[in-house]
Design a protein around this nucleic acid. Structure first.
Lengths: 298, 298
DNA sequence: TAAAAATACTCCATAGGTATTTTAT
DNA sequence: ATAAAATACCTATGGAGTATTTTTA
């Protein structure tokens, strides 16, 4: 009777995730029978079945669910051992999986990637762009190392490091270029175009206008700032975008930018990571690179 | 370049603990060269040295210390996977490592062991007797599954389950059998014999008398209740012992037992375990067995 | 009948053993 | 000189591959 191995846990985790021996085996880069054997060995060792095998699906048993949750924690911790060694070797090198929210990614990444490629040639940067809740989830699972999001997060499982503060500006049709910039209150009566639900930037814009969660004008949400600006250019309404997006987004549409009087709406952008991530000391270098990449457009 | 294996972590942990390749290898039931190879492989994989090899000693590097702390967590979590399966199989079976404090062990264990042997023949009970702080430490390291101690502990990492409440009784020389039982205040002026530092029972006795931590009469501490009672029999002073100890301890010395008027001094005895221990649901059976074993002497 | 998992077998990578050498006080 | 770790070399276990069978909707 042999012991549990990390290989078995990795194979188990893959099968639990994919629910299909063939596909899970592919992901593990082994053959389907090899996976079958290891799973059966693991079940034999535990004296418990982990999966219900149906002819069209493989599903975790109740015990398998409990087991999976612990197994994932273990695999994450083991991966962190490797990160610990990398961090000890020093420097920002090797694979780094960075998440970025959609209202920052397109404006920051070109400069950031160029800068890091020059300053840290040994860094293997992987970028994932999605909304904050998903970034948080993937960070927690150890599928990302760090993420750039709007602060504060105030989640005790994550460490935060502020990077920069950025104003929100008003985008109007070019025809209104000479009108005075409206007040927050006046903004509430205009047709304000917003990002769809899930984007934290939507909530930041709404909160600046002192509006609650419900959208002011149904059916006018966009899935990107670019879309919103194009709609503004077509005279559909006005929108708010972050300062950083101005150079990119206002070039290709007949719109103008207006900046509010104090109190200016703004958001704080920062870097976050799992509190237990041993790479944390190395993230300072990353933070500085981000600040330098962001500075020119702020 | 192969991956980290649990075997390597187990070997590493053993070497870190023993600081000696030969002895660590023995504990792992492998040869010294086999251990050497695996450790070097692990170091090679990490790109970091884990140990400073001296001719007379092997010590962890600073990095090795960090690594060890995480590795131990992982090994504990893996062991818990096995426990999870055992718990799911049901029943109180297999190895169970139980810690018991010294002021309970000798009075409870004979009845408990006999009862469990009869009711749970498949249970492989290992008992460790030592003071609470050490039990806590070993529970935390996963070297014990559960422990019987005085409650409350109020440590968020541990779950508690009260078992029974037990009075403290006064033991005096037989000559004082007809004297009235003194009050708490009067007790303070008598020569009260106590267990040495480290025993929680010492603190319970002191707190009953409203005495602070410092010992009232230097040089009169005993290392067991048995010693204390023998000293009382020799006329050296008086002492407090738990009700449970009365039948065993007062038989072989010329002493008498006095019970206080309300408020009677008492302690709560309970079972504790790591909050994450998957065997927890099975401990209910153990708790009931302990209660039944304790009932006759309370 | 068809898709998918389990079984059968074969092979080879590697963990581990024994014998020996190197190292550092 | 000695205790202890590293190296060399050999063996055998078991993980993984291919081919095939079994299962069940």
């Amino acid at each position: 009777m042999t012991n549990i191995t990390l290989k078995q846990l990795r194979y188990f985790e893959s099968l639990a995730r994919h629910g299909h021996f063939g596909r899970a085996a592919d992901v593990c880069a082994i053959s389907q029978p090899a996976l079958s054997v290891q799973i059966r060995e693991l079940e034999g060792h535990l004296g418990q079945t982990l999966f219900e095998r149906g002819p069209r699906q493989v599903r975790l048993t109740a015990f398998g669910e409990d087991f999976a949750s612990r197994a994932r924690d273990i695999l994450r911790a083991v991966d962190e051992l490797g990160d610990l060694a990398r961090a000890a070797r020093g420097g920002l090198v090797g694979r780094l999986r960075l998440g970025v929210i959609p209202t920052i990614a397109p404006y920051l990444l070109p400069a950031l990637v160029a800068r890091l490629a020059a300053s840290h040639p040994a860094l293997d940067l992987h970028v994932r762009e999605t909304v904050t809740p998903r970034l948080i989830e993937e960070l927690g699972q150890g599928r990302l190392d760090a993420a750039i999001v709007a602060l504060p997060l105030a989640d005790p499982g994550f460490a935060e490091r502020a990077l920069f503060r950025e104003n929100l500006v008003l985008v109007r049709p070019l025809a209104q270029a000479d009108d005075p910039v409206p007040s927050r209150e006046a903004l509430r009566d205009m047709r304000l175009l917003l990002l769809e639900e899930g984007h934290c930037f939507r909530d930041q814009a709404l909160s600046f206008c002192n509006l609650t969660g419900s959208q002011p004008h149904a059916g006018l949400d966009g899935s990107s700032l670019s879309t919103l600006v194009q709609l503004v250019g077509a005279g559909i309404g006005v929108t708010l975008i972050p300062e950083m997006a101005v150079p990119v987004e206002t070039r290709s549409a007949p719109v103008c930018v207006g900046r509010f009087a104090a109190p200016q709406p703004a958001r704080t952008v920062g870097l976050i990571w799992r509190a237990s991530n041993p790479l944390a000391p190395r993230f300072e270098e990353l933070a500085e690179a981000v600040q330098q990449a962001a500075a020119p457009v702020l």
